[in-house]
């Protein structure tokens, strides 16, 4: 029982009459959203506690430092297993948080200003977005939010409402 399979989203088996369905926590909430809002929940997300300074196992994975001892890696869904394996090391705790975090991509600084008091020129950062603790990343006018999946509908409602008020 070395790997905790039940934590991962990519260990399901199809067969015997079963066909597991991955369902994004934002699936219902974003049904009516416009093209400026994108669901990133399916992205592979792996949290590592411990040193990742010298890690160069998967070049395509994006590395987001959360605290000095904690790092979040983002990758394409199909690369998650490889990323977990590459990171595995007795000195680190590696947790697949793909199912734990919902992801949302938004456009426009003004919209973000209505959602958070984080310094948008000082990203990435972790702070309250719509009162939910969120990891916020920025590329130009595009923002990516990663937050606990159980707040997905709540967050989507606030985001769509704020966008409607602009």
């Amino acid at each position: 029982m070395s790997e905790l399979e039940f934590l991962s989203t990519d260990r399901t088996r199809t067969g015997g009459g079963f066909e597991p369905v991955f369902r994004s926590p934002l699936a219902d909430a974003l049904a009516a959203a416009g093209p400026d809002v994108r669901d990133l929940s399916a992205l592979g997300k792996v949290e590592v506690r411990g040193d990742v300074e010298g890690f160069d196992g998967l070049a395509s994975a994006e590395r987001i430092p959360l605290t000095p001892g904690r790092t979040l890696f983002l990758c394409a869904p199909e690369e998650t297993a490889r990323l977990r394996e590459a990171l595995a090391d007795p000195s680190r705790t590696v947790v697949d948080v793909t199912g734990a975090l919902a992801g949302l991509e938004l456009r426009g600084e003004r919209l973000l200003r209505r959602l958070t008091d984080l310094d948008l020129d000082g990203l990435p950062a972790v702070g309250a977005v719509a009162r939910v603790t969120t990891i916020v990343l920025r590329t130009g006018e595009e923002f990516r939010l990663f937050f606990p999946q159980e707040y997905a509908r709540s967050m989507a409602e606030v985001v769509l409402d704020a966008a409607a008020g602009l």
Partner: peptide, 14 residues
């Protein structure tokens, strides 16, 4: 302001 109250919902909520 808008007064949204964050609510936690399970993945089975719907």
């Amino acid at each position: 302001g808008r007064g949204h109250e964050p609510a936690r919902r399970t993945s089975i909520h719907e």
